[in-house]
Design a protein around this nucleic acid. Structure first.
Lengths: 246, 246
DNA sequence: CCACTACTGCGTATGAGATACGCGAATTAG
DNA sequence: CTAATTCGCGTATCTCATACGCAGTAGTGG
């Protein structure tokens, strides 16, 4: 019954037993991942090439392939490493406080590793850190008498919303930092030029009222907008909980 | 006062006037974008290289650069092209029906162009189609006496949630199609091997109850999960509307 | 202590991809 | 006609991921 474990799983959970024969490895998977994370933190995900990571380690490019099958695998490992350990959640917090803390925790981790949101996802969460965060999110609903399926869906929604929101915020911030005025001076000025009140009535109304005027600054530290969005989702969660527990 | 328009804007809105001198162009921006979209539809976003798109058009690679400054620009144009025209929304629908229709419309468009969710966003929405969809979303809140800022935030939340949800769903489906059993047989089997009840109590509980057992199939046609998430968010919107209008 | 075996690091080579640069041909304004 | 443009595209450079295989190393069984 000791079924074969998949290579991805072995890698993510560092389950490979150290070989008896052969030379001592001068390099470990963790070293590679750490180096890749450092490169990404400093210069962004695009700067993470096998050559770049190897140089950061003082090794040659091809040495990495002894420990990692492909760059895809490296990215998968980075995605787990970026999430760090989730913080301790107070046991007495209700679900809403818990989810808010959870979102802030994700924000803290992602802020330190902004490239996280760009790693392509191709499989359900499976790394140790990913599962830890998933567990903590589920944990906020502990004690509530909800079907597993509802809990799961509510948490998946939370994950989706939080990651989507951070991705949008960070992308805009990065785009803005790189090119502060993509559309002739300002977003508002650009909109005024192309928005036709007949074609886009609702938008035109906001433009006319000057709503976009001050909004040049897309700093993600400006979490006000994001927090509001989160509270909207949490209001929805509250409604569902009420519906199911009454 | 005729301020200079930015190149991106000119390109997105096709505002460049046709030059008087020189040979007739045998190629237009729209041809290139259409070809790129066809390639992406058929073989995915990774297959979209300048060479591939040019070959699809029967032109040489470098010919494209006469019309497009960089691949980034091409992707930007593709992102707008993928969104097609939004459908007509019934005028008598309330905001909730409107947002639901909106989400379904996005789903329909994205389903035809699954690569859409992978195009990196680096600036606020500005293409004609993007603004059209944005306007329609704002339009669902017409007639409600809400501050612009609240409407804007509610719509941004909707966009975030819907795109995030589709991205997740499509990525998992793609990953599953490519590698149906990434973790020794099944997700459930893999989880059973690595989830420690002391480390991950909430998750372990679900695993023990067999919750993940049947969930091998990550088909995005399975919109039930997504619809539920959307309804959660819309419940939140309802709560906000109630708070602000009464 | 020796041969064997399972490993290690890494050099070389291949093939794709983006894109700078600039040439020569086409087209029209004056 | 001549000069001003603008077009298509060939050539070349640089960056990457990665297949392949060699040579050296450390336990192991004789």
């Amino acid at each position: 019954m000791t079924e074969e474990l998949s290579p991805d799983l072995v890698l993510l959970w560092r389950l490979r037993e150290t070989p008896k024969r052969g030379p001592k490895p001068g390099l470990m998977v963790d070293d590679i991942v750490t180096a890749a994370v450092e490169v990404a933190d400093a210069e962004g995900l695009d700067a993470v090439s096998m050559a770049r990571v190897a140089a950061h380690l003082g090794n040659s490019t091809m040495a990495l392939y002894r420990h990692i099958k492909s760059k895809r695998e490296l990215l998968m490992l980075m995605a787990d490493a970026a999430l760090e350990e989730p913080p301790e959640f107070p046991a007495d917090a209700d679900w809403r406080a818990g989810m808010t803390l959870w979102a802030r925790g994700v924000f803290a981790a992602v802020s330190r590793h902004r490239w996280f949101v760009h790693i392509p996802i191709s499989a359900p969460p499976f790394g140790p850190r990913n599962l830890m965060w998933f567990d903590r999110a589920l944990g906020t609903l502990r004690g509530l008498d909800l079907p597993h399926e509802i809990k799961y869906s509510l948490v998946m929604g939370l994950v989706t919303y939080v990651q989507g929101g951070y991705r949008l915020a960070l992308d805009l911030a990065a785009g803005y930092a790189e090119n502060p005025a993509p559309f002739s001076g300002s977003y508002a000025a650009g909109l005024r030029k192309v928005v036709d009140p007949h074609q886009l009535p609702a938008l035109a109304e906001m433009v006319a009222d000057g709503f976009f005027e001050g909004a040049e600054d897309f700093e993600p530290s400006d979490t006000g907008d994001f927090d509001f969005g989160l509270s909207v989702y949490l209001d929805g969660v509250a409604a569902q909980i009420e519906r199911f527990t009454r």
